[in-house]
Amino acid sequence: MAKEKKKVIKNGREDLTIHFMPYSEIAHEDSVGRIKKILGIVLKNKIVILQGRLRSDEEAKLIENSMMLIGNVPGFAGIEIASLSGENENRSLFEGVRRNIAKILVGEQDAITVIGPASVVKDITKDPKKIELMLSRK
């Protein structure tokens, strides 16, 4: 079951909802279902923090679908997205093989992905080790 945590931005501004989504919530969905589920939450002006990451073709489809919604959903200006992989550059050969097998079997679960509506998330900056969200003050 997804856990939701509500945070109130100070100074009387709008509530900000962060939706923590465990990988199990999308593991049995097909690509369409995954994208639909994520966009459904983002369209409610919530930020999704997903355990794991989408496949690259699913990410492209998510961007494509977001573009189709711009102009058709009032106030929607697209998404901001960033993934942080659990990859360790100094991993051993055995560790690399183990990770690749695990990725094929259960998906890349040791990554984290942040997806938010562009109207709420002004910018996401990322470096190899961290993701920073800059939120809009609306």
Partner: peptide, 17 residues
Amino acid sequence: ANPYSQVNITILGNLVA
């Protein structure tokens, strides 16, 4: 610019796939 944008990663991932 910062190269770690998800757009770059998504494009490259799709080309590899």
